[in-house]
């Protein structure tokens, strides 16, 4: 059953995840009996919402001032996990998203153990960009990865996809701004971090915020970050994003490198 998925992976990955080679088209035909047929992420995704022009929702974070937005931050906040002292942000972000799609509780320890066994996760050598979707792939979650824009993020959320981005955590946790211009300043020693972007909103003051399920600290559930700080932090990582769910259009190469 799905509930045993991560544990099973850790116990005997080969028995349960036999031919997985996500780099080979069609190879992600994981033995259907070990990956339960209940794995149907599309049907379990919370419907996308667009609050613009409707009553603001009252959720896990105070959105009483929200006048406009996209995404499902309140529903997604339920599936936030804290990664603890481990450098497992990509693992936890993927696992949380998978949990939201399937309803199966995420077991971080089992997942990281399994990924380590596969050579896709090692705290000493870090997580390669090509490995940040391994869990999605193993779990048959359709994904699109690449560089995109803030508009692209909006579109993916609006389409119902879950979005994971890589960014410099220093610049969202401890943002520094130019005292004269107010422009966000770039950190020279980035703290590379993968987070689940659950929404983009505008409040009654006209300020745009992004809502993140950030596994990196205890206050990361439905954390809101000023758009400027997010743009600064995300820009450091080439505006890379992963859209999970298969609703959004494939990322256009033309968008690569563009900010908006």
């Amino acid at each position: 059953m799905i509930g045993d998925f991560f544990t099973d992976l850790a116990l005997d990955a080969h028995n349960h995840l036999n031919p997985v080679d996500p780099d080979v088209e069609g190879a992600a035909v994981v033995a259907a009996d070990s990956f339960s047929p209940e794995v149907e992420p599309h049907g379990l995704i919370h419907p996308p919402h667009n609050l613009c022009g409707t009553d603001p929702a009252v959720g896990l974070h105070d959105r009483t001032q929200v006048v406009c937005g996209v995404g499902t931050p309140d529903a997604d906040a339920v599936h936030w996990h804290f990664q603890g002292p481990e450098e497992a942000c990509a693992v936890v972000s993927q696992g949380s998203i998978i949990e939201s799609l399937t309803g199966v509780p995420f077991d971080e320890a089992a997942a990281t153990r399994w990924l380590e066994q596969q050579g896709w996760y090692d705290p000493a050598t870090g997580t390669r960009p090509e490995d940040v979707t391994r869990l999605f792939q193993a779990y048959h979650v359709p994904t699109a990865s690449g560089s995109t824009t803030v508009g692209g993020l909006w579109d993916a959320l609006a389409a119902g996809d879950k979005v994971m981005v890589t960014l410099d955590a220093n610049e969202i946790w401890h943002p520094v701004h130019d005292p004269a211009t107010g422009a966000p300043l770039e950190s020279l020693q980035p703290a590379g971090h993968a987070v689940w972007l659950t929404g983009i909103e505008q409040n009654s003051n006209g300020e745009w915020k992004v809502v993140l399920n950030d596994s990196g600290h205890q206050g990361g559930r439905a954390e809101t970050v000023a758009l400027a700080d997010f743009v600064n932090a995300w820009d450091d990582y080439g505006n890379q994003a992963v859209f999970a769910g298969g609703h959004a259009a494939p990322l256009s190469p033309a968008e690569t490198g563009a900010r908006t």
Partner: peptide
């Protein structure tokens, strides 16, 4: 509006 707001952000690289 979001795209316009993002485009107006100046990052001090």
């Amino acid at each position: 509006r979001l795209v316009t707001a993002a485009a107006s952000i100046s990052v001090d690289r």
